[in-house]
Amino acid sequence: MRRLQWGYLLLAFAFIYLPVASLVLFSFKDGSLPLPPFEGPTLRWYGEVLGDRRLMAALGHSLMVAVGSSLTACVLGFLAAYGLARHVLPGSLWLRGLLIAPMTVSYLIVGLGLLIVFNQLGIGLSLWAAGIGHVVINLPLCFAIIYASMGAQQQNIERAARDLGAGEARVITLVTVPMLAPAILAAFFLAMTLSWDEFVIAFLLTRFEVTLPVEIWSLLRSGLSSKTNAIGSIVFLGSAAIVLLLELFIFGRRRP
């Protein structure tokens, strides 16, 4: 029975890593078709990716949109969480519901709604439009994570600071934010990874300057290629690095 269970664990890992492993392995293949048999290894495709100006531009755009939209979502989410956790507001249950509502809607619908509005208003599509969309999908997440971490314990410390004469702005910047730093950072990095990988909103709302997933999408039209493997591997390793950093420095520290 036990052996069966370890066998299942191995099989599950094989299934989970089979596509990723082929992606990374064939990105080193000396040949343009990323299919067996393997020849190489070579770093040629990584060189080509680094030399590809469109891909590098898209990478820059993705980083900008991811950092900008995650920062905005975190700031707005934090302020809303603070307002709702520390003040008595009428209908706060409804407000919370409204703020997390975008989480239950497909990205496609968020993107389509914004596309229709921008079209009707005659606003051109751009990275800004995609950034606005990414804030819409990340705000509920940042709000929920930060709100959940605002407990009574922190409130007592905030009260102490206030009794000692700190104004609200000082309480927030010197007490609340540092205390909630793990949750805020977790929200920020989660939003970063989601925005960094997001395709459909960016696809609908950008036109000339596009993000990396959209650029990769247009590469796919020309079929399988080792170069696509190389850029795909970079994207995967980038996301994996963020998640591992998050685990090591933020979640890992909470362990006793």
Binding site: L76, L84, H87, L89, P90, V110, G133, V136
Partner: peptide
């Protein structure tokens, strides 16, 4: 309450305007 609204308004505005 008023101050609470002040904190919630930016996020609320974003959700109402863009969602």
């Amino acid at each position: 309450t008023l101050r609470g609204w002040g904190f919630v308004t930016p996020a609320l505005f974003w959700t109402l305007a863009f969602f």
